[in-house]
């Protein structure tokens, strides 16, 4: 049985990623076919089509894959260490911090200086929120409840600050800030791409290697301590690592909800609760799901671009309604 699951996760899912990758490169409004895509990837043609594919779609699909993987894997880890199936990468106030940083960069005009400033400000915002949550939950014992509580508090404070900035600002790029907040792949800075790829992939590998320890932590404090696990130290490390991955993704592409909540849920149903398999499986699934969503938001109302955050939230929301209805049916 476990071997079968390993095959599914490590062979089937990467193959699916490849298929989705090619499909996403091909779909769009320019009548590019799958064959064109493959031709472009394996030749050095210099026509219009290859320009669109290489310079517009390729980075976009790559970043969608990487960010989907990062959000899904860190969501999986947050659910495990917070012992809460409703946790996601944004439960602990990261989205609040990112929104704060971004809004500040637009309202105070940093964004117009250089495009590099928005991700930078978003990252600073996230780091502030992570730091505050960390310090707040350190006050007592470092446990899941105090972390969630601190995260909720930080979220509220930051969203109040964001609203205040929107209300008091007369800057005319608030619309841009708003679009950014809903997550988008159109305006990210390509120079950041290698950095994001490295951080997310290394992060996911580290988290996956800690899968067994995360398993042990999920047994409950008393049990995991008596099998020799330093629970607090590991939770701190995992929290900071998963937060860092989320911070990087959010800084580049804004707040993309539901991926980190929904993907681990689905994958848990398929591969089971063992994190050593669940974390990489979630990462792969995220790398399949997000490019598909992005393609959908490009194609569905073309030429209007639906913000990716809206697409994932609509799909995620409907998924949970379905889940709720299904479980109610099976209960009655």
């Amino acid at each position: 049985m476990p071997n079968k699951k390993f095959l599914v996760v490590y062979i089937l899912m990467p193959m699916l990623i490849l298929v989705v990758f090619l499909f996403s490169l091909a779909s769009g409004s320019n009548g590019i076919s799958l064959i064109d895509v493959i031709n472009v990837l394996f030749s050095n043609a210099d026509d219009n089509i290859s320009l669109i594919i290489r310079q517009v779609r390729f980075p976009r699909v790559i970043i969608a894959c990487v960010i989907g993987a990062g959000l899904a894997a860190s969501g999986c880890v947050f659910q495990a260490i917070l012992k809460n199936p409703l946790a996601d990468p944004f439960t602990l106030g990261i989205s609040g911090g990112a929104a704060f940083g971004t809004t500040a960069s637009f309202v105070f005009g940093f964004a117009s200086i250089t495009s590099f400033f928005t991700p930078f400000c978003a990252f600073i915002g996230v780091m502030i929120s992570v730091f505050v949550v960390y310090c707040l939950s350190m006050q007592k014992r470092f446990n899941s409840n105090s972390m969630i509580l601190s995260g909720v508090v930080v979220s509220y404070v930051f969203s109040a600050a964001v609203m205040l900035m929107f209300a008091l600002s007369s800057a005319n790029n608030i619309q841009t800030a708003f679009i950014w907040l809903m997550g988008n792949f159109s305006t990210f800075d390509e120079r950041l791409l290698p950095f994001v790829i490295v951080v997310v992939i290394v992060g996911i590998i580290v988290l996956s290697l800690f899968g067994n320890i995360i398993n042990a932590i999920s047994l409950g404090d008393e049990k995991s301590k008596t099998i020799g696990i330093n629970v607090e130290k590991n939770i701190k490390f995992l929290f900071l690592t998963a937060s860092f991955i989320t911070a990087v993704t959010v800084s580049v592409c804004g707040i993309i909800g539901f991926v980190g909540l929904m993907i681990p849920h689905i994958m848990r149903k398929i591969v089971g609760a063992n994190n050593i398999l669940l974390i990489p499986a979630s990462a792969f699934a995220g790398a399949i799901f997000l490019p598909l969503c992005d393609t959908l938001s490009r194609v569905l109302l073309a030429p209007i671009l639906i913000p990716i955050g809206a697409t994932t939230s609509i799909i995620g929301g409907s998924f949970f309604v379905w889940l709720l209805l299904k479980s109610r049916k099976s209960m009655s």
């Binding site: 999920s218 047994l219 409950g220 008393e222 049990k223 008596t226």
Partner: peptide, 8 residues
Amino acid sequence: SFLPQYVD
């Protein structure tokens, strides 16, 4: 080794 009352 310890078996507590509550193990998840």
